[in-house]
Design a protein around this nucleic acid. Structure first.
Length: 124
DNA sequence: TTGAATGAAAT
DNA sequence: ATTTCATTCAA
């Protein structure tokens, strides 16, 4: 079952790209990037240089994924190692990220966790 | 199954 | 201004 698509519903991302309300925290805790992402960071730049005409993430995403599979473990090794370190670091950061008090904004309403396979979210 | 980076294009 | 497009991997 490949849920790689992740797009049966709006599940892909909640997309919170507006603004960080609290600048103080700044560094919010994110999931550790996988080896693929570590590799991709470099790949994206290289790809852009090789293909300045290309446009979006989808293209380099595919190209990156294709290349990733093309790489041998030894080639992936440094990325995997880096990912492992990032993961380790993440756990450390996460340990300090325990405080999550809504200082200013209080979400009084408890968000009901809509989960899983609802193709259609009736949020109305 | 979600979310992580990404950045232009589409809505 | 928000969502989409796609990739893989870890939680």
């Amino acid at each position: 079952m490949k849920e790689t698509k992740t797009r049966g519903a709006k599940a892909g991302s909640k997309l919170g790209v507006q603004k960080g309300k609290n600048a103080s925290k700044g560094a919010k805790i994110k999931r550790p990037p996988s080896a693929f992402f570590v590799f991709m960071e470099k790949f994206r730049v290289e790809y852009k240089e090789s293909h300045p005409n290309n446009k979006s993430v989808a293209t380099v995403g595919k190209a990156g994924g294709a290349k990733w599979k093309s790489m041998s473990e030894q080639e992936k090794a440094p990325y995997v190692e880096k990912a492992a370190k990032l993961k380790s670091d993440y756990e450390k950061l996460k340990a300090g990220q325990v405080e999550e008090e809504d200082a200013a904004s209080d979400k009084s309403k408890s968000e009901v966790e809509e989960e899983g396979d609802n193709d259609d979210d009736g949020d109305d």
